[in-house]
Computed example of a mutant assay.
Amino acid sequence: MSLVRYNPWKEMNTLQRQLNQLFDDGLLTNLGQELKDLTYVPSAELSETDDSILLKLELPGMKSEDLDIQVTKEAVYISGERKQETKSEENGVTRTEFRYGKFSRSIALPALVNNNNVTANYQEGILTLTLPKAEEEKNKVVKINLG
Protein backbone atom coordinates (compact mmCIF):
# COMPACT_ATOMS: atom_id res chain seq x y z
CA MET A 1 0.00 0.00 0.00
CA SER A 2 1.34 3.38 -0.97
CA LEU A 3 0.82 6.67 0.78
CA VAL A 4 -1.03 9.31 -1.27
CA ARG A 5 -0.72 12.92 -0.33
CA TYR A 6 -3.99 14.95 -0.23
CA ASN A 7 -4.04 17.90 -2.61
CA PRO A 8 -6.93 20.33 -1.95
CA TRP A 9 -6.19 22.25 -5.17
CA LYS A 10 -7.13 19.21 -7.22
CA GLU A 11 -10.73 19.51 -5.98
CA MET A 12 -10.72 23.26 -6.74
CA ASN A 13 -9.54 22.54 -10.29
CA THR A 14 -12.32 20.00 -10.71
CA LEU A 15 -14.90 22.53 -9.51
CA GLN A 16 -13.52 25.17 -11.88
CA ARG A 17 -13.75 22.77 -14.84
CA GLN A 18 -17.36 21.94 -13.96
CA LEU A 19 -18.31 25.64 -13.76
CA ASN A 20 -16.58 26.36 -17.06
CA GLN A 21 -18.49 23.50 -18.65
CA LEU A 22 -21.75 24.89 -17.25
CA PHE A 23 -21.12 28.24 -18.95
CA ASP A 24 -19.86 26.63 -22.15
CA ASP A 25 -22.95 24.44 -22.45
CA GLY A 26 -25.11 27.56 -22.68
CA LEU A 27 -27.19 26.95 -19.59
CA LEU A 28 -26.59 30.49 -18.39
CA THR A 29 -26.34 32.33 -21.71
CA ASN A 30 -29.88 33.68 -21.42
CA LEU A 31 -29.28 35.03 -17.92
CA GLY A 32 -28.79 38.59 -19.17
CA GLN A 33 -32.11 38.54 -21.02
CA GLU A 34 -33.90 37.05 -18.00
CA LEU A 35 -32.54 39.80 -15.75
CA LYS A 36 -33.64 42.40 -18.29
CA ASP A 37 -37.19 41.00 -18.32
CA LEU A 38 -37.62 41.26 -14.55
CA THR A 39 -40.69 43.25 -13.72
CA TYR A 40 -40.85 46.46 -11.78
CA VAL A 41 -42.30 46.11 -8.28
CA PRO A 42 -43.37 49.36 -6.60
CA SER A 43 -42.24 50.10 -3.06
CA ALA A 44 -44.97 50.21 -0.43
CA GLU A 45 -45.44 51.70 3.02
CA LEU A 46 -48.20 50.47 5.31
CA SER A 47 -49.31 52.22 8.50
CA GLU A 48 -52.24 51.58 10.80
CA THR A 49 -54.36 53.80 13.05
CA ASP A 50 -57.31 52.91 15.26
CA ASP A 51 -59.81 53.61 12.48
CA SER A 52 -58.00 52.92 9.21
CA ILE A 53 -55.02 51.52 7.35
CA LEU A 54 -52.94 53.84 5.18
CA LEU A 55 -51.13 52.33 2.21
CA LYS A 56 -48.68 54.34 0.12
CA LEU A 57 -47.20 53.01 -3.12
CA GLU A 58 -44.36 54.60 -5.06
CA LEU A 59 -45.33 54.74 -8.76
CA PRO A 60 -43.26 57.50 -10.36
CA GLY A 61 -43.90 58.30 -14.01
CA MET A 62 -47.10 56.26 -14.21
CA LYS A 63 -50.46 57.51 -15.37
CA SER A 64 -53.53 56.77 -13.27
CA GLU A 65 -55.28 55.14 -16.24
CA ASP A 66 -52.47 52.56 -16.45
CA LEU A 67 -53.20 51.29 -12.91
CA ASP A 68 -55.68 48.63 -11.83
CA ILE A 69 -56.44 48.62 -8.09
CA GLN A 70 -58.65 46.04 -6.43
CA VAL A 71 -59.39 45.93 -2.71
CA THR A 72 -60.88 43.02 -0.80
CA LYS A 73 -61.51 42.88 2.93
CA GLU A 74 -58.14 41.16 3.47
CA ALA A 75 -55.79 42.50 0.78
CA VAL A 76 -54.98 45.09 -1.88
CA TYR A 77 -54.11 43.98 -5.40
CA ILE A 78 -52.47 46.48 -7.71
CA SER A 79 -51.23 45.97 -11.23
CA GLY A 80 -50.20 48.25 -14.02
CA GLU A 81 -47.90 48.88 -16.89
CA ARG A 82 -45.21 51.45 -17.36
CA LYS A 83 -45.13 52.14 -21.06
CA GLN A 84 -41.98 53.12 -22.89
CA GLU A 85 -41.93 56.07 -25.21
CA THR A 86 -39.91 55.38 -28.33
CA LYS A 87 -37.47 58.05 -29.39
CA SER A 88 -34.95 57.95 -32.18
CA GLU A 89 -31.70 59.83 -32.14
CA GLU A 90 -29.36 60.91 -34.90
CA ASN A 91 -27.12 57.88 -34.70
CA GLY A 92 -30.04 55.49 -34.22
CA VAL A 93 -29.08 54.43 -30.71
CA THR A 94 -31.23 55.14 -27.67
CA ARG A 95 -30.01 54.30 -24.21
CA THR A 96 -32.23 54.18 -21.16
CA GLU A 97 -31.97 53.14 -17.53
CA PHE A 98 -35.69 53.38 -16.82
CA ARG A 99 -37.64 50.19 -16.20
CA TYR A 100 -40.66 49.55 -18.35
CA GLY A 101 -43.16 46.75 -18.34
CA LYS A 102 -45.99 45.21 -16.40
CA PHE A 103 -46.08 44.69 -12.67
CA SER A 104 -48.46 43.29 -10.11
CA ARG A 105 -48.34 43.26 -6.36
CA SER A 106 -50.62 41.97 -3.64
CA ILE A 107 -50.40 43.31 -0.12
CA ALA A 108 -52.05 41.48 2.77
CA LEU A 109 -53.69 43.83 5.23
CA PRO A 110 -53.18 43.49 9.01
CA ALA A 111 -56.92 43.93 9.69
CA LEU A 112 -60.22 43.54 7.86
CA VAL A 113 -61.28 46.68 5.98
CA ASN A 114 -64.53 48.08 4.67
CA ASN A 115 -63.63 47.93 0.99
CA ASN A 116 -66.71 49.93 -0.06
CA ASN A 117 -65.35 53.17 1.47
CA VAL A 118 -61.75 53.18 0.25
CA THR A 119 -60.39 56.53 -0.86
CA ALA A 120 -57.47 56.99 -3.22
CA ASN A 121 -55.20 59.91 -4.01
CA TYR A 122 -52.51 59.86 -6.71
CA GLN A 123 -50.18 62.82 -6.61
CA GLU A 124 -46.57 63.28 -7.75
CA GLY A 125 -46.04 59.55 -8.29
CA ILE A 126 -47.33 58.48 -4.86
CA LEU A 127 -50.58 56.52 -4.63
CA THR A 128 -52.19 56.84 -1.21
CA LEU A 129 -55.03 54.51 -0.25
CA THR A 130 -57.02 55.11 2.92
CA LEU A 131 -58.69 51.85 3.92
CA PRO A 132 -61.23 52.24 6.75
CA LYS A 133 -61.30 49.31 9.14
CA ALA A 134 -64.39 47.15 9.36
CA GLU A 135 -66.56 47.80 12.42
CA GLU A 136 -65.76 44.41 13.94
CA GLU A 137 -62.04 45.26 13.77
CA LYS A 138 -62.48 48.66 15.45
CA ASN A 139 -64.27 47.13 18.44
CA LYS A 140 -61.97 44.15 18.75
CA VAL A 141 -60.71 43.93 22.32
CA VAL A 142 -59.20 40.75 23.65
CA LYS A 143 -59.16 40.06 27.38
CA ILE A 144 -56.23 38.04 28.61
CA ASN A 145 -56.56 36.03 31.79
CA LEU A 146 -53.46 35.34 33.80
CA GLY A 147 -53.69 32.29 35.81
Rank of each mutant, 00 (worst) to 15 (best):
N7Q: 12
N7S: 06
W9L: 15
K10R: 11
E11A: 15
E11S: 15
N13M: 10
T14G: 12
R17T: 08
L19M: 10
N20E: 09
Q21G: 05
F23E: 04
D24F: 03
G26Y: 02
G26C: 08
G26V: 04
N30P: 06
L31P: 00
L31K: 07
Q33N: 15
Q33L: 14
E34F: 06
L38S: 10
L38M: 03
V41H: 02
V41Q: 12
V41C: 12
S43L: 13
S43T: 07
L46Y: 04
L46W: 06
E48R: 13
T49Y: 00
D50K: 14
D51E: 15
I53G: 01
L54A: 02
L54M: 13
L55N: 00
K56S: 08
L57I: 04
E58Q: 03
M62V: 04
D68W: 09
Q70K: 08
A75H: 12
A75V: 05
S79W: 01
R82S: 02
K83D: 01
Q84G: 07
Q84D: 07
E85H: 05
S88T: 15
E89P: 05
E89T: 10
N91I: 13
N91P: 01
N91V: 08
G92E: 01
T96N: 05
E97K: 13
E97T: 08
Y100R: 07
G101N: 01
G101M: 11
S106G: 03
I107P: 02
P110F: 08
P110T: 06
N116M: 12
T119N: 11
T119D: 06
T119W: 09
N121A: 13
Q123M: 13
G125I: 06
T128A: 02
L129F: 01
T130M: 05
L131T: 00
P132M: 01
P132V: 02
E135W: 10
E137Q: 09
K138I: 05
K143S: 15
N145E: 14
N145L: 15
L146W: 13
